[in-house]
Amino acid sequence: MNKTIKSVLFYALVLAVILISVFPFYYAVVTSFRSGTALFSTSLWPFPVDLKNYFVIFQEQPFGTNIINSIIVATSVVVFSLAIAVTASYALARIHFRGRGLLLMTVLSVSMFPQVAILSGMFELIRSLGVYNSLPGLIIPNTVLTLPFTVWVLTTFMKELPKELEEAAIVDGASPLTIVVRVFMPLMWPALVTTGLLAFISAWNEFLFALTFTLSNEVRTVPVAIALMSGGSEHELPWGNIMAASVVVTTPIVALVLIFQRKIVAGLTAGAVKG
């Protein structure tokens, strides 16, 4: 009897956790199907489905361009960061040299430091390079976000690979670069995918730099576009459009996270607790 009550309570708690986690996204989907006066209804029932908002954001606003901007910026940053991080993390994880501890600490500090602390220096840099209000002007500052993180996580992964691997290669006279490319890279693919995905998400979500270093709607990334979105007319509440845009950009990310959930959890914990 006591046991039944306990398990009922437990499942009630579980249900509450699921509801609280999922409801806001569900409600965003419901709202995205409503426009005009239908927005005043707080009904939780999604029907009737009206897709007007989805047409509006792509036809009356450059949201398609915003998505392409985000994809370009996030992909470039991730590819660039991974390319640099692979060799760097090999050196940091597998080679003993003076100053390694200091370097690792620097990398960790940079990934912890507040982006706003470099805002004016970065602004100046971007203006002097002539890339203000353009996509390269977003790729440069985003590197601050993704590079230290990628190096840190990949170093953690690299440390876990068995030592025998490279010892055999060294005996065979392989150079360090050959070891990285031939021995480690094939084993690192899962780690690279996970790290790349996490870095992609953080670049995709980046807001402060994207807000500050762009002026026109055509070069904005998705988060800035969503934050600054306005309605079709002055009297119209833009919430339907905002929710439609939110659903469009969140669905792929949520899908990716759910597909790769085990890998992502491993990557997150490698960045923080394992070592």
């Binding site: 996204f25 965003a28 807001f207 950009v249 990310i253 996270v257």
Partner: peptide
């Protein structure tokens, strides 16, 4: 909730 962008 973790997967949803902060702005969203």
């Amino acid at each position: 909730p973790w997967a949803i962008p902060t702005i969203v």
